[in-house]
Design a binder for these strands. Structure first.
Length: 480
RNA sequence: GUCCCCAUCGUCUAGUCCGGCCUAGGACACCACCCUUUCAAGGUGGCGACACGGGUUCGAAUCCCGUUGGGGACACCA
């Protein structure tokens, strides 16, 4: 119990970081931080055929963006390196040799073709498709001869007969497997690279990992790992298998069902705090009614005991809500600086920072992403190209034209602050004997081209007299 | 097919370990109302679930068994 907690996130560099991977990494990270332990990143690049150049950098970048800094791993080093499995081949080879020597593993010369044929046949006969152990009986001399002749081979673990293997899982409790459903797993491939199972066990031991926190898809291969620890004479780590993240159709979340890459969400403008908060709540809860958590809060509160067992659908609605609320909590300067390049990209200019802050103040309650300012309120920056047809149909009445031209006359002389504008317009409405809204709606339509948006008087003040007068004149000219 | 896991509102979930405090709580979404020049934001309220069947018990969302449903794993991929 006094041992220091060490956990790891161990992705394979086959593509972008997946939101499911982000959650796994997050739980590992939070668990480490909560217990004052270490969080390591290890790259499981043992399948050279699936290796994607640049994937490591993309994964690291996504983790960094999300605020998950690791204590040991690529780029930061550490006492248990290297942190790329492809650079640790000698360790796996050594472990495999030990297993062969103890009789817990054996070389296998069967070709992929033979294995295929065997599995097909067995499947037809409705038998288990486990390896038939043809190479288990090979004598030492035979093995040596075939090895010497350069015949390719793998190393398989020898699953003991008729035993049960118990996995004590921190989230699932005791799970029991019978060894006769376990296959003689390949540990070392013919190219000399280890499979996941061997590499994972060897590295977790060598890196002194105390808790293996990973997705539920690994639960069924855990008995093999437990056996490997036993064969090697090592104390196994504690296991915690997290419920899966599901797509809308309730199957394991994958591409095609939604955007799954962390970078997709980043590109759409989601805040890392929102994504992290959202994903943290998919499978974990604090035990009391609260759903907004900063990373610090999570570090303080997280515990594996409160991780659930059932899969959670990755449904974006709550993420959008979190996103909007995080956006509103951001300082104006941050929003402003993010907004500038978006405006520049459209060729729009503005009077200065203070003015931009006013725009932001008027828009902040109405957006979830900074990019929605130019998308929904471009009229702050450029005269509207047209007037929204639906609004025209709904708000532009026969008497609107006359009302608007009289309003124009008033506005040309009125002081242009929101308070004065409001009392002028209200005064006019009273003199005309109409409702304030009969003036407000046409004015909004003229000034913004739209039927919805920030309060009219504040918006007009921000726009300024010149722009408002120009737009009202233009509306008078184009509207029926 | 075999093995393993899971099962409370549409979604995320509390409650399940240690049965009564649960006429099942919260959040998102949705609906209504309030605020209001619009749209939001905010406030108030509403809609809405213990998969099913058997037990055990004075009493079961909670324990047991079964059924059904869903998911995962069964590669020289991780």
């Amino acid at each position: 119990m006094a041992e220091a907690v060490r956990v790891r996130f161990a992705p394979s560099p086959t593509g972008l970081l997946h939101v499911g991977g982000l959650r796994t990494a997050l739980y590992n990270y939070l668990f480490a931080r909560r217990h004052g332990g270490a969080f390591l990143l290890r790259i499981e690049d043992t399948d050279r055929s699936r290796y994607v150049p640049g994937a490591v950098e993309m994964i690291v970048e996504s983790l960094r963006w999300a605020g998950l800094d690791y204590d040991e791993g690529p780029g930061v080093g550490g006492p248990h390196g290297p942190y790329f499995q492809s650079e640790r081949l000698d360790r796996y080879r050594e472990a495999a040799d030990r297993l062969i020597a103890s009789g817990d593993a054996y070389p296998c010369f069967c070709t992929a073709e033979r294995l295929d044929a065997m599995r097909r046949e067995r499947e037809k006969a409705r038998q288990s498709t486990k390896y038939d152990r043809r190479c288990l009986g090979l004598g030492a001399a035979g093995i040596e001869r075939r090895r010497a002749s350069g015949e390719p081979h793998v190393v398989r673990m020898r699953i003991p007969d008729e035993r049960s293997v118990v996995v004590e899982d921190l989230v699932r409790g005791t799970v029991e497997f019978s060894t006769d459903v376990l296959d003689d797993q390949v540990l070392l491939k013919s190219d000399g690279f280890p499979t996941y199972h061997l590499a994972n066990v060897v590295d977790d031991h060598l890196m002194e990992v105390t808790h293996v926190i990973r997705g539920e898809e690994w639960l069924s291969s855990t008995p093999k790992h437990v056996l490997l620890y036993r064969f090697l004479g090592w104390a196994p780590p504690r296991f915690a298998h997290l419920p899966l993240l599901l797509g809308k159709d309730r199957s394991k979340l994958s591409k095609r069902q939604a955007d799954v890459a962390v970078s997709d969400y980043r590109a759409q403008g989601y805040r890392p705090e929102a994504l992290v908060n959202f994903v943290a709540l998919l499978g974990w809860n604090p035990g009391y009614d609260r759903d907004v958590f900063s990373m610090d809060d999570l570090m303080r509160e997280f515990s594996l005991e409160r991780v659930g067992k059932s899969g959670a659908i990755f449904d974006l609605e709550k993420l959008r809500w979190l996103q909007a609320s995080y956006l509103r909590s951001l300082p104006r300067e941050v929003l402003r600086e993010e907004l500038k390049p978006l405006l520049e990209a459209r060729g729009w200019t503005w009077p200065g920072d203070a003015w931009l802050d006013r725009v932001l103040d008027l828009m902040i309650e109405r957006i979830a992403f900074v990019r929605e300012v130019p998308e929904k309120a471009g009229w702050f920056f450029a005269d509207p190209a047209e007037h929204d047809a639906e609004t025209v149909a709904k708000r532009w009445k026969p008497e609107s034209r006359g009302l608007l031209s009289r309003a124009l006359a008033v506005l040309e002389r009125s002081p242009f602050d929101a308070g004065s504008l409001e009392s002028e317009v209200r005064g006019l409405a009273e003199r005309e004997g109409v409702a304030v809204s009969d003036l407000v709606h046409p004015l909004r339509l003229a000034c913004t081209g739209m039927g919805a948006g920030p309060g009219l008087f504040a918006l007009m003040e921000t726009l300024g007299r010149e722009a408002c007068v120009r737009r009202i004149r233009r509306a008078l000219g184009t509207l029926p």
